[in-house]
Amino acid sequence: MGQDFIASFRNMTIDYVMKKTSLRAVNDLSLDIHRGGITAFVGESGSGKTTAVSALLQGISSPGKIVEGKVIYYGDEGEVDVAALKGEALRRYRWEQVSMVFQASQSTLNPLMTIYDQFYETAYYHGAVRSKEAFNKRLEELFDMVKLDVNRVRKAYPHQMSGGMKQRVMIAFALLLEPKLVILDEPTTALDVITQKYIFNQLMEINKRLNVTFLLLTHDIGIVAKAADYVAVMYAGSIMEYADVYTLFGKKLHPYTRGLINSTPSIIRSASEISPIPGMPPDIRNLPEGCPFGPRCPSCSERCRAEKPQLKEYAPGHWIACHLYGGEEA
């Protein structure tokens, strides 16, 4: 297991427990993440992708809780139950094994510290500074990876850099302690198109060169098509379809996947080739019985309204949660 995959979600359910109600943000999610690849979680806001993936860092924002199932990380010393990590073990696990580039993470830089100091502090805290020289060398390597001029950036304060530069600094920061898995949460929103493309090219290069696994969270279908190796399509807390990127875009089997791709404007599509998904986005406080996508699905049947489809392997490596592709045995 640990050879091919780096992490697994096993029947994970996450609820936000409030005083009076509780919201099911992630519903019975199971997935194995390929080691070394770029796996994209794609979905609208509120689809639960960020909540689900934060579980890998024990970073589910309160009052969210894993109420069922678990997250497993395959480290060098065997399986790690992430939710059970505590104290020193958790501290070492975070950033040394799994790190994250946050959405609009430019604002997570401390405005009063130079880039060098921020990197040094984190490395020092994790005991990764053997000598000044070694650390400087590591810094040079990191900034070289994101194509930043180390001499210009190390002494800079965050306000002296553009958004694109800051975002690349954050990527370098996530790679600082040589993690095996990096979560990228909408890493290029709010950046300009050319910068966006450039950053993704670098990310893809880093992914190949360092063999580090990326988990990419995004709502942008174009970015998925550009960068991802595997794609998990999420809707209302559940995975609707999971496949490698060529199969997913080539076959467009699940009605939601099809809707999502067909509703994405593109410079090579004319208006007649684009059609929106009918209906309103799901309200996770008030999901229908059966398939959550049912109310908006063009091929919704009696069975879809009554019974929630499970995620099943339709073809090797291609998983679908839809009664249309359920096979006969169900």
Partner: peptide, 16 residues
């Protein structure tokens, strides 16, 4: 040209 080549296209075959 640079701008248009940077816009990602929702089709992995064309995009790549």
């Amino acid at each position: 040209q640079a701008l248009i080549s940077s816009v990602s296209i929702p089709d992995p075959v064309i995009e790549r």
